[in-house]
Simulated assay, not measured.
Amino acid sequence: MKPSLLSRLLGRRVAVPEAKASRTGPLLALQGQGRARWTPRDLAALAHEGFMKNAVVYRAVTMIAEAAASVPLLAYEGEAEAPDHPLLALLARPNRHQGGAELMETLYANLLVAGNAYAELVRLGAAPAELHALRPDRMRIVPGPEGWPEAYEYTAAGRTLRFEGTGAGDIAPILHLKRYHPLDDYYGFAPMEAAAVALDIHNAAGAWNKALLDNSARPSGALVYRGEGGANLSQDQFERLKRELEANYTGAISAGRPLLLEGGLDWTSMALTPRDMDFMEAKNGAAREIAFAFGVPPMLIGIPGDSTYSNYAEANRAFWRQTVLPLVGRTAAALANWLAPAYGGAIRLGYDADAVEALADEREALWRRVAAADFLSRDEKRQAVGYGAEGEGEWDG
């Protein structure tokens, strides 16, 4: 029996039974050493500066989360749809305080703002009874000896609750949804982080414009000392003036504040006007970058200057096809993979794209093409548009 990779790294021979497992897992475990790993960024700052203070981020996250939560989920056993499956009932009413759409909206929003989302399973005996969404900023992951998370620790109100991992064939109490992160083995990457520079520009431009308005939009300039006989300011006078300027007239909050000039000082305006500096275009450019990071066509948020799509309907279809439905599909697959053992393991989840009104034109075009395909049987036509076979015979529609 060969010694494990971990034992060779540590210089000890440890007899372990051979089993199917990732050969790189022990490397991750060695890196983590079983210690809890906090999410490596300030989620509170992301939420504060982005979702809570930036209208573009707020609207993008809200649009995606609400749209994704509105898509009906479908359950399948094999190829057959199971409309009365108990998993659908659990997702429709996950707990006493939330409906299914509200829970899913919370999970989607957490995934977009933090890059991570966590769901807790409450069981009554062996059967799943409730699902709850947990705050990502309160969760930390404890790596196990094989490199995979062996536990999750949730901290709130000064207390920490540990959710242990489960053995093979059982259901883990925590589902961790995450977006792809190229440099982290345990946590996901939030779209807001990719747009961090644009977010700062957008917020700073707004703060600067607000300060200019508060101070009557007066532009900046230079102080010129016109003393008698061409004399200059003394060193003490220069240092005092410099201190007063830095203390009272620097920063966005002091933008445009008028100066109180003493004898011999003259004000010479030298700054560009807000129109020349084109703050609005800078804000709109930053807003477009934020929208792109989240996968929302800028046209849908009302950002001018974007000509990627010829009309609103085309942009809306792209939003659903490229952003919303892939998110719903990945989440549905993760939920089914997590909860399937409780229902015999033969359940999968999909979504009903036919219920999306924004895709109605696509469906009608597909139905016309399929109806015109005379070489297809009725059953083949039904299967081509996503419905099960009904029987032999030609479709006269």
Rank of each mutant, 00 (worst) to 15 (best):
V370T: 06
V197L: 12
R179E: 14
A60Q: 04
A346F: 00
L177D: 00
L88H: 04
R159M: 13
Y309K: 03
R23M: 13
L124P: 04
N232I: 08
L265H: 06
M52L: 15
N116R: 03
F292R: 15
G229W: 03
V356Y: 03
L265Q: 13
A333D: 11
D306W: 02
L335M: 12
V122K: 11
L91F: 06
W395R: 11
G11C: 12
H132L: 12
R363H: 14
L46M: 09
E79G: 02
A101R: 15
R123E: 11
L199D: 02
A117T: 05
L10V: 13
R288K: 12
L259N: 05
R96M: 11
E314V: 07
L124A: 12
P191Y: 07
A68S: 12
E239P: 04
N316I: 03
G100L: 01
A126Q: 07
A255T: 04
F375S: 13
P26M: 06
V356T: 02
A15S: 12
L112G: 01
R378T: 02
Y225G: 01
A333E: 15
L366D: 08
A15R: 15
A211Q: 06
A342F: 05
N215Q: 05
G350M: 04
A342S: 10
A271I: 00
N209Y: 09
N110F: 11
A196W: 15
D266T: 10
